[in-house]
Each structure stands twice: as structure tokens, then as C-alpha cells.
């Protein structure tokens, strides 16, 4: 996903002199390294200084540039939070903040590198859009959107590298502010976003094996969220399952339950997310997710699919 972002950014940046990228001492991967070589003026490294990374992006945008800020997810939002809030959101500037490794992607690096509350924090900010693509293909589409939109600041939450493509045969194209049906079924609806979508696919297979017709939805447009589409989904299906790699506070699971209550929907809703705690666990990404209870077998058991 990270590499696809880099490819697309290079592709767009070579033709658009307004595009620039400001990083905070992160080694540029793939095509971003090539962008740095080919367009050195439009690649800025502020060093280990995230406040100025965000502040500079705001100033660049105010003078007509189209900047992307780029570093590990925790350091895009947490360290420079007030700069994100005041400089980007309050002034409503079209700057894309690229957070690499949202959730617990950096599974061996410990809690300082886990962006497990990033969705809650980013969605709480007025004017901020939050987009979390689930695979390289979706990352390509949303990166192109980020590079041309004039709406305001965006938190673009990416995984790391090596995610499988899941959406090449999707039933619908990605559209900003809309839920995206990847497959359409009648009984169960599974909603997810970000790289954990692969577990949503696995759970969907379990339902299908049990004879259920399954819808799969990518909620890559986390904010603005498609309330209307979600309510329609709640009314269309008997069961909705939300699987997401984020802390419970501020999660889409809670939002879907609130929407179901307000709409008087009778659909049963189950939600799965990270625990509200710091895990002192190490391992690969799947092992960290399992420590939080986000393991396909455990989810299937909780859903009565054994």
C-alpha cells in the first residue's frame, strides 16, 4: 500500500509542480525516493521535527502549493496534534497527512509506534476528512483524489507494505463520502476499512460456508461517513458485523450502533476492534491483532460460526 502510494504520488507529482512532500526523517520508500532524486526542491525533510512538518505544509498550502506530510502514523497526528488542529483544520487547508502504519501495523516496535487511537483523534477534528484504504488498489484511487481535492485537510491512513489486492473485482468504485460495496449479498453485511479488511474477507467466507449471502463494505471514507448508506445497509441486512483496527472510543462500530438505534433498525450489530489498552506484545501484525482479539477464528466463534 505504501509503495502504491509512492508510485501514484510520483506519477502525479511529475506533472503537477504544485505537489510537494514534507517528511520528518522517514526514509523515503520506493518511488518517493525517486521523487526526491528527480524533484529535490519539492521533497523537504524537516528532520525529527513533526511540528514544523505540519506547520510548513500549512504555510506551503497558504501560498498555493499542494503539500503532503508523510511519516509514521503516530508522528503525523500525536506529536504535532495542535499544529494539525490549528494550522490545518482550523484554517481548513488542503493538506494531506499520510500516516504510515495506522493501527498496530508496526507490531514489533512497541506502543510508542502504535496508532491505535488515530481514527478517534482524526475524526474528532472539524474539517478533517479521514480516509483509510484497504488495499493497494484502493490506495491508488484515494491518493489521486487527495492530490486534486480542494475540500480541506485529509488524514490518509495507510498500512505498510505487502497488503494483498482485495478490491480489483469490487462491485462499486470508491467514492468520497460513500460506503463502497465490494460484494453485495442479502443476509449479512460486513463493514471494514484499512488492511484488516482481509479478515473481513475471511469472516465472509465463513458465513458463505454456513449458507449465508454476504455483503462486504469498504468504509475507506471514514469521515465524512456515509450515514445514509449505513442506515440503508442496516435495513437491507439481518446482521451487520464491523471489523476495524482502532480503539473502541471513536470507532465506527459504536457509530453504526448509534445509527441503528436512531433509525429504529432491527438489524443485529456486532463490532470488533482493538482493546482499550496498551499491549506489551511483540510479533507480526497478525499476532498483535490476535492479542487484541482480532483473529478470524475468534471473531467467527463470537459470531457463532463454529
Amino acid at each position: 500500500m505504501r509503495n502504491k502510494f509512492a508510485d501514484v504520488f510520483y506519477d502525479l507529482g511529475k506533472d503537477d509542480p504544485k505537489l510537494c512532500i514534507v517528511v520528518a526523517d522517514i526514509s523515503p520508500a520506493g518511488s518517493i525516493a525517486k521523487f526526491r532524486t528527480d524533484f529535490p526542491d519539492r521533497f523537504v525533510n524537516t528532520g525529527v521535527a513533526e511540528q514544523i512538518m505540519i506547520g510548513m505544509c500549512a504555510g506551503l498550502a497558504q501560498r498555493g502549493m499542494r503539500p503532503f506530510a508523510y511519516t509514521i502514523a503516530t508522528f503525523t497526528l500525536y506529536r504535532p496534534f495542535e499544529f494539525v488542529r490549528d494550522d490545518l483544520c482550523y484554517q481548513n487547508l488542503p493538506v494531506t497527512i499520510v500516516g504510515i502504519g495506522g493501527g498496530v501495523t508496526y507490531s514489533t516496535l512497541g506502543g510508542t509506534h502504535h496508532a491505535q487511537e488515530d481514527i478517534a483523534i482524526a475524526t474528532a477534528l472539524p474539517n478533517m476528512s479521514v480516509i483509510a484504504p484497504c488495499d493497494p488498489s484502493e490506495a491508488e484511487t484515494v491518493t489521486r483524489w487527495c492530490a486534486t481535492q480542494t475540500r480541506g485537510p485529509v488524514y490518509l491512513r495507510l498500512g505498510k507494505a505487502g497488503e494483498p489486492d482485495l478490491t480489483l473485482d469490487a462491485a462499486e468504485p470508491w467514492e468520497f463520502g460513500k460506503l463502497r460495496y465490494l460484494t453485495k449479498g442479502d443476509d449479512v453485511c460486513i463493514l471494514s476499512y484499512g488492511p484488516i479488511m482481509k479478515k473481513a474477507f475471511e469472516v465472509a467466507e465463513r458465513y458463505r460456508a454456513a449458507g449465508q449471502s454476504v455483503s462486504l463494505i469498504s468504509a475507506a471514507s471514514v469521515k465524512p461517513f456515509d450515514d445514509e448508506g449505513a442506515v440503508a445497509g442496516l435495513k437491507r441486512h439481518k446482521k451487520m458485523v464491523v471489523i476495524e483496527e482502532t480503539a473502541p472510543v471513536g470507532s465506527l462500530g459504536l457509530k453504526i450502533k448509534a445509527l441503528a438505534y436512531e433509525a429504529g433498525a432491527t438489524c443485529d450489530v456486532s463490532s470488533f476492534c482493538l482493546q482499550d489498552e496498551f499491549m506489551h506484545h511483540y510479533g507480526n501484525h497478525d499476532e498483535l491483532l490476535a492479542a487484541h482479539g482480532l483473529e478470524t477464528g475468534a471473531i467467527a466463534t463470537a459470531l457463532g460460526l463454529d
Binding site: 510537494c20 514544523i52 505540519i54 505544509c57 504555510g59 506551503l60 502549493m65 494550522d87
Partner: peptide, 29 residues
């Protein structure tokens, strides 16, 4: 957004980053 006002300030320590970005934006263009 108010005519003549180039940035929302009030929280201290923001101006240097904004101004650095603005100055560099002028150079890039």
C-alpha cells in the same frame, strides 16, 4: 479568512512553521 489576515494565530509557536512554509512556497513557485 478575514481580509488582510494571513493566518489564524493565538496559540503561540505556530508562526515560525507557517512562515517557513510560506517563504519556501514562494521559492518553489
Amino acid at each position: 479568512g478575514v481580509p488582510g489576515i494571513s493566518a489564524s494565530t493565538g496559540s503561540l509557536g505556530h508562526g515560525m512553521g507557517l512562515a517557513t512554509g510560506m517563504a519556501y512556497g514562494e521559492r518553489l513557485q
